[in-house]
Design a protein around this nucleic acid. Sequence first.
DNA 1: GATGGTAGTTAGACTACCCTAACGCTTGAT
DNA 2: ATCAAGCGTTAGGGTAGTCTAACTACCATC
Lengths: 171, 171
Amino acid sequence: MLSGKHSHERELSPSQEHYLRAIWELRSERGYARLADLARALEVTPATLSVGLRPLEARGLVAHDDQRFLLLTPAGERVAREVHHRYTVLRSFLHDVLRVPAATAEREACLIEHDISGTTTERIVDFLKLLQEDREVGAPFQARFDAFHRSCGATRPCTDCGLACLTPAPR
Amino acid sequence: MLSGKHSHERELSPSQEHYLRAIWELRSERGYARLADLARALEVTPATLSVGLRPLEARGLVAHDDQRFLLLTPAGERVAREVHHRYTVLRSFLHDVLRVPAATAEREACLIEHDISGTTTERIVDFLKLLQEDREVGAPFQARFDAFHRSCGATRPCTDCGLACLTPAPR
DNA sequence: GATGGTAGTTAGACTACCCTAACGCTTGAT
DNA sequence: ATCAAGCGTTAGGGTAGTCTAACTACCATC
């Protein structure tokens, strides 16, 4: 589908970032990660991973035991945590603020995590923190937002584009 | 880089969505779109497009003149507008609300536009409208947010993960 | 009417990502 | 001791999206 050139100026491809995050999450949850577990978690065949992890090993991000348990090097763990961080922030924003259903929020966060810069991520963190910490902003905002989009008239298609648009509707 | 299976359950691939949006934008701006213009706009070679547009023609989304000027069918235009809508909404959110620099906002919106559902897009629209229309929420919110992230202490790394994290820092 | 630029196409190659099928290596149960 | 299960690897294939290079087709002017 999408490939090279545009998108993803990062050093690692989306898949590779995904692999790293999944290894880290497995290891956090159960203390170890085997290739087969990882394959299950990522819904990918072991063959795919066997090949796909190779470049990550070559770059010194992933390694393994004498028992072939997967390990993250410090560099690999740093990347994994960054990806996980982006994922978490996005999911929280989508679900906790925008009230997108949990499954959708997770699915979309999984994709967007590879597209979004660190800078943007931190802006969203600021945003979440503001809602959390500033009582004069947080609660009223969320209450209004919830009410706002519950009233289905909130977004009405604009006659020009047939899509809910950003120019305020005439009244 | 990223391919098949995960990501993008949409009928069209990210590239194809991109092509449609670009045709639509070119035609909106200057009334016509030629393959060469499109190639320049998308920073892709004409050869890529010549091949890449074929499936879109086969699906009845794109057509051309006797003069080979590119046209969108009604179905093609509908998709193009949807993509453009997602793009616009994202860019506005990133730039106007989160204050991400314009260039970054555009670059990231260009990527995320293919990942995000219509539902989520409309949630963001609701959010933008709320800020725009509700004076008790909009202005104070934005003022606080701007002040908040200007003060660089706003996000501080948490000792646990080394990344600004979502659990409130101990005080 | 030859020359040359612009537009689009075709052919061939490459990379990323995925799959299935077949094989080798433990390891644990019978 | 064998045999089955499970893990990982290898080999071979497929698709999407891109590229370069070589072509065709049309104008435009000289």
